[in-house]
Simulated scan of single mutants.
Amino acid sequence: MAFVALSFLGAPALAGQEDARLDPLFRDLQGTADHVAAEAVEDQIWEIWLEHPGQDLLVLMRDGVQKLNDDEYEAALADFNQVIAKDPNYAEGWNKRANAHYLMGNYAAAVQDIRRVLLLEPRHFAALAGLGLVYLAVDEPTGALRAFNAALAINPHLDGVREQAMKIRQQMAGAAL
Protein backbone atom coordinates (compact mmCIF):
# COMPACT_ATOMS: atom_id res chain seq x y z
CA MET A 1 0.00 0.00 0.00
CA ALA A 2 1.93 3.03 -1.23
CA PHE A 3 0.69 6.27 0.29
CA VAL A 4 2.80 9.18 -0.81
CA ALA A 5 5.83 9.78 -2.95
CA LEU A 6 8.27 12.22 -1.43
CA SER A 7 8.71 13.99 -4.77
CA PHE A 8 6.72 17.01 -3.60
CA LEU A 9 9.24 17.89 -0.91
CA GLY A 10 10.68 20.71 -2.96
CA ALA A 11 7.33 22.48 -3.38
CA PRO A 12 7.33 26.14 -2.42
CA ALA A 13 5.98 27.09 0.97
CA LEU A 14 2.59 28.78 0.88
CA ALA A 15 1.10 31.55 2.99
CA GLY A 16 1.96 31.55 6.67
CA GLN A 17 5.17 29.54 6.42
CA GLU A 18 7.40 32.01 4.59
CA ASP A 19 8.44 33.73 7.82
CA ALA A 20 11.86 35.27 7.21
CA ARG A 21 13.07 34.03 10.61
CA LEU A 22 12.88 30.39 9.50
CA ASP A 23 15.66 30.27 6.89
CA PRO A 24 18.48 31.24 9.26
CA LEU A 25 17.08 28.91 11.92
CA PHE A 26 17.14 25.97 9.52
CA ARG A 27 20.71 26.87 8.55
CA ASP A 28 21.64 26.97 12.24
CA LEU A 29 19.96 23.60 12.77
CA GLN A 30 22.06 22.12 9.96
CA GLY A 31 25.25 23.83 11.04
CA THR A 32 25.48 22.97 14.71
CA ALA A 33 26.87 19.81 16.23
CA ASP A 34 25.81 20.94 19.71
CA HIS A 35 22.60 19.13 20.70
CA VAL A 36 21.69 21.77 23.29
CA ALA A 37 22.01 24.53 20.69
CA ALA A 38 20.06 22.43 18.18
CA GLU A 39 17.27 21.93 20.69
CA ALA A 40 17.05 25.68 21.27
CA VAL A 41 16.86 26.30 17.50
CA GLU A 42 14.25 23.59 17.10
CA ASP A 43 12.18 25.23 19.87
CA GLN A 44 12.34 28.55 18.00
CA ILE A 45 11.18 26.86 14.80
CA TRP A 46 8.24 25.30 16.64
CA GLU A 47 7.32 28.67 18.14
CA ILE A 48 7.16 30.19 14.66
CA TRP A 49 5.22 27.24 13.25
CA LEU A 50 2.68 27.55 16.04
CA GLU A 51 2.21 31.31 15.69
CA HIS A 52 -1.05 32.60 14.29
CA PRO A 53 -2.72 36.00 14.46
CA GLY A 54 -6.10 34.49 15.32
CA GLN A 55 -6.52 34.04 19.07
CA ASP A 56 -9.61 31.85 18.62
CA LEU A 57 -7.60 29.53 16.38
CA LEU A 58 -4.79 29.33 18.93
CA VAL A 59 -7.30 28.45 21.65
CA LEU A 60 -8.64 25.62 19.46
CA MET A 61 -5.08 24.42 18.85
CA ARG A 62 -4.24 24.45 22.55
CA ASP A 63 -7.47 22.64 23.40
CA GLY A 64 -6.92 20.09 20.65
CA VAL A 65 -3.38 19.36 21.79
CA GLN A 66 -4.60 18.93 25.37
CA LYS A 67 -7.25 16.49 24.15
CA LEU A 68 -4.61 14.55 22.22
CA ASN A 69 -2.53 14.37 25.40
CA ASP A 70 -5.61 13.12 27.27
CA ASP A 71 -6.24 10.42 24.61
CA GLU A 72 -9.48 12.16 23.54
CA TYR A 73 -8.72 11.69 19.86
CA GLU A 74 -12.20 12.29 18.42
CA ALA A 75 -12.57 15.54 20.35
CA ALA A 76 -9.06 16.63 19.32
CA LEU A 77 -9.88 15.84 15.70
CA ALA A 78 -12.99 18.04 15.93
CA ASP A 79 -10.88 20.92 17.22
CA PHE A 80 -8.28 20.51 14.47
CA ASN A 81 -11.04 20.31 11.86
CA GLN A 82 -12.18 23.74 13.06
CA VAL A 83 -8.62 25.06 12.94
CA ILE A 84 -8.25 23.97 9.32
CA ALA A 85 -11.66 25.39 8.42
CA LYS A 86 -10.62 28.76 9.88
CA ASP A 87 -7.25 28.79 8.11
CA PRO A 88 -6.49 26.09 5.54
CA ASN A 89 -2.98 27.57 5.05
CA TYR A 90 -1.96 27.01 8.67
CA ALA A 91 0.40 24.06 8.33
CA GLU A 92 0.47 23.23 12.02
CA GLY A 93 -3.30 22.72 12.06
CA TRP A 94 -2.88 20.05 9.39
CA ASN A 95 0.06 18.53 11.27
CA LYS A 96 -1.88 18.23 14.51
CA ARG A 97 -4.85 16.75 12.67
CA ALA A 98 -2.47 14.23 11.06
CA ASN A 99 -1.33 13.31 14.57
CA ALA A 100 -4.93 12.71 15.64
CA HIS A 101 -5.63 10.58 12.57
CA TYR A 102 -2.46 8.56 13.17
CA LEU A 103 -3.35 7.93 16.81
CA MET A 104 -6.83 6.80 15.74
CA GLY A 105 -5.35 4.39 13.17
CA ASN A 106 -6.68 6.45 10.23
CA TYR A 107 -3.42 6.13 8.33
CA ALA A 108 -4.63 7.18 4.88
CA ALA A 109 -6.16 10.34 6.37
CA ALA A 110 -2.95 11.02 8.29
CA VAL A 111 -0.95 10.77 5.06
CA GLN A 112 -3.31 13.17 3.28
CA ASP A 113 -2.85 15.71 6.07
CA ILE A 114 0.93 15.20 6.13
CA ARG A 115 0.99 15.82 2.39
CA ARG A 116 -0.79 19.14 2.98
CA VAL A 117 1.66 20.06 5.77
CA LEU A 118 4.59 19.42 3.44
CA LEU A 119 3.05 21.45 0.65
CA LEU A 120 2.69 24.36 3.06
CA GLU A 121 6.03 23.82 4.85
CA PRO A 122 8.37 21.45 2.98
CA ARG A 123 10.88 21.59 5.86
CA HIS A 124 8.45 20.23 8.44
CA PHE A 125 10.72 17.55 9.85
CA ALA A 126 8.10 16.40 12.37
CA ALA A 127 5.56 15.75 9.62
CA LEU A 128 8.17 13.71 7.75
CA ALA A 129 8.96 11.75 10.91
CA GLY A 130 5.22 11.19 11.33
CA LEU A 131 5.02 9.93 7.77
CA GLY A 132 7.74 7.45 8.66
CA LEU A 133 5.68 6.24 11.61
CA VAL A 134 2.64 5.79 9.36
CA TYR A 135 4.72 3.71 6.96
CA LEU A 136 5.93 1.59 9.88
CA ALA A 137 2.35 1.11 11.06
CA VAL A 138 1.35 -0.27 7.64
CA ASP A 139 4.51 -2.40 7.38
CA GLU A 140 6.23 -0.42 4.62
CA PRO A 141 9.79 -0.12 5.93
CA THR A 142 11.18 1.26 2.66
CA GLY A 143 8.76 4.19 2.75
CA ALA A 144 9.46 4.69 6.44
CA LEU A 145 13.19 4.82 5.79
CA ARG A 146 12.74 7.39 2.98
CA ALA A 147 10.57 9.58 5.22
CA PHE A 148 12.96 9.28 8.18
CA ASN A 149 15.95 10.11 5.96
CA ALA A 150 14.11 13.15 4.61
CA ALA A 151 13.39 14.33 8.17
CA LEU A 152 17.04 13.83 9.15
CA ALA A 153 18.23 15.75 6.09
CA ILE A 154 16.34 18.76 7.44
CA ASN A 155 16.99 18.21 11.14
CA PRO A 156 19.98 15.93 11.78
CA HIS A 157 19.37 16.14 15.55
CA LEU A 158 16.33 13.85 15.66
CA ASP A 159 17.92 11.03 17.64
CA GLY A 160 14.76 8.90 17.86
CA VAL A 161 14.25 9.17 14.11
CA ARG A 162 17.90 8.27 13.51
CA GLU A 163 17.50 5.18 15.72
CA GLN A 164 14.35 4.12 13.83
CA ALA A 165 16.15 4.53 10.50
CA MET A 166 19.13 2.53 11.74
CA LYS A 167 16.84 -0.24 12.98
CA ILE A 168 15.11 -0.41 9.58
CA ARG A 169 18.47 -0.54 7.77
CA GLN A 170 19.60 -3.38 10.05
CA GLN A 171 16.38 -5.29 9.46
CA MET A 172 16.65 -4.82 5.71
CA ALA A 173 20.29 -5.96 5.75
CA GLY A 174 19.31 -9.01 7.81
CA ALA A 175 16.48 -9.85 5.41
CA ALA A 176 18.91 -9.60 2.48
CA LEU A 177 21.12 -12.33 3.93
Rank of each mutant, 00 (worst) to 15 (best):
A2W: 03
F3S: 01
V4Y: 04
V4H: 04
L6Y: 02
S7H: 08
S7N: 13
S7L: 13
P12I: 04
P12D: 15
E18N: 14
R21Q: 14
L22S: 09
D23N: 10
D23P: 03
P24D: 08
G31C: 14
A37E: 12
A38N: 14
A40N: 09
D43T: 15
Q44C: 06
D56N: 08
L57M: 09
L58Y: 09
L60D: 15
D63Y: 07
Q66R: 11
K67G: 05
E72G: 05
Y73P: 00
N81D: 14
Q82H: 10
Q82W: 07
Q82C: 03
V83D: 01
I84C: 10
Y90E: 08
N95Q: 14
Y102G: 01
L103F: 09
A109T: 10
V111N: 03
Q112Y: 12
R116H: 13
V117I: 07
V117T: 05
V117D: 00
V117F: 01
L118V: 11
L118N: 05
P122W: 00
R123W: 08
H124T: 02
A127V: 09
G130F: 00
L131G: 07
G132R: 00
Y135I: 04
Y135K: 06
L136A: 10
A137Y: 15
A137S: 10
P141N: 12
L145S: 11
R146H: 06
A147S: 13
N149S: 14
A150M: 03
L152Q: 01
L152F: 09
A153E: 12
I154V: 10
I154D: 02
P156Q: 13
H157I: 03
V161H: 01
V161M: 01
K167R: 15
M172T: 07
G174Q: 07
